[in-house]
Amino acid sequence: MANTSPAVIEAQKAIGAVLEQLEAKTGGDVRDIALEDFVDTDPHTGSPILQKAVEITLQARPSRRWST
């Protein structure tokens, strides 16, 4: 990460913490994360607006059992 600003580093740490919490709550592993654009309708004007959404793909962790 060459020439990464302090604001970007702080955001990466915050996002990493949120993803860690998600994995802890779901028992899954974050497999993929993507930023997507989508068109929505502005509730005040009724005009179309471009918004951003985060798509997170979780993969189930295999259950681990010790043989006895």
Rank of each mutant, 00 (worst) to 15 (best):
Glu55His: 13
Thr57Cys: 02
Thr57Arg: 09
Leu35His: 02
Gln21Arg: 12
Val18His: 05
Thr57Lys: 11
Ser47Tyr: 03
Asp40His: 11
Glu36Pro: 01
Ser63Lys: 12
Asp37Cys: 00
Leu50Trp: 08
Leu50Tyr: 08
Asp29Glu: 14
Ser5Asp: 15
Glu20Ser: 10
Asp32Pro: 00
Arg64Ile: 11
Val30Glu: 01
Val39Asp: 13
Val39Gly: 03
Gly46Glu: 03
Pro43Cys: 01
Asp42Ala: 03
Gly27Tyr: 09
Asp40Cys: 06
Lys25Pro: 01
Arg31Phe: 12
Asp29Ile: 11
Leu35Ala: 07
Glu20Cys: 03
Ala34Glu: 12
Asp42Cys: 09
Lys52Trp: 01
Glu10Leu: 08
Ser5Ala: 15
Gln59Asp: 12
Ile56Val: 15
Gly28Leu: 00
Ala7Ile: 13
Glu23Cys: 05
Val8Gln: 15
Ile49Phe: 04
Ala14Arg: 15
Glu36Cys: 05
Ala60Val: 08
Glu55Ser: 13
Ala2Ser: 14
Ala14Leu: 14
Glu23Ser: 06
Ile49Gly: 06
Gln51Val: 05
Leu50Ser: 13
Glu36Asp: 08
Thr26Gln: 05
Glu55Met: 09
Ala17Pro: 01
Arg65Trp: 05
Leu35Ile: 11
Leu35Gly: 01
Leu35Asn: 09
Gly28Tyr: 00
Lys13His: 03
Ser67Val: 09
Pro62Thr: 07
Ala14Cys: 10
Gln59Val: 08
Ala24Met: 11
Arg64Thr: 13
Asp42Lys: 03
Gln59Met: 08
Ala7His: 12
Thr41Tyr: 05
Ala17Trp: 02
Leu35Trp: 03
Gln59Glu: 14
Glu36Arg: 13
Ser63Pro: 13
Ser63Thr: 12
Lys52Tyr: 01
Pro48Phe: 07
Ile56Glu: 04
Gly46Met: 04
Ile33Ala: 12
Glu23Thr: 08
Ile49Glu: 06
Gly28Lys: 01
Pro62Tyr: 01
Glu10Ser: 15
Gly27Pro: 03
Pro48Asp: 09
Lys13Ala: 07
Glu23Ala: 05
Val30Lys: 01
Ile15Thr: 13
Asp42Leu: 07
Ile15Asn: 10
Val39Met: 10
Gln21Tyr: 08
Gln21Ala: 09
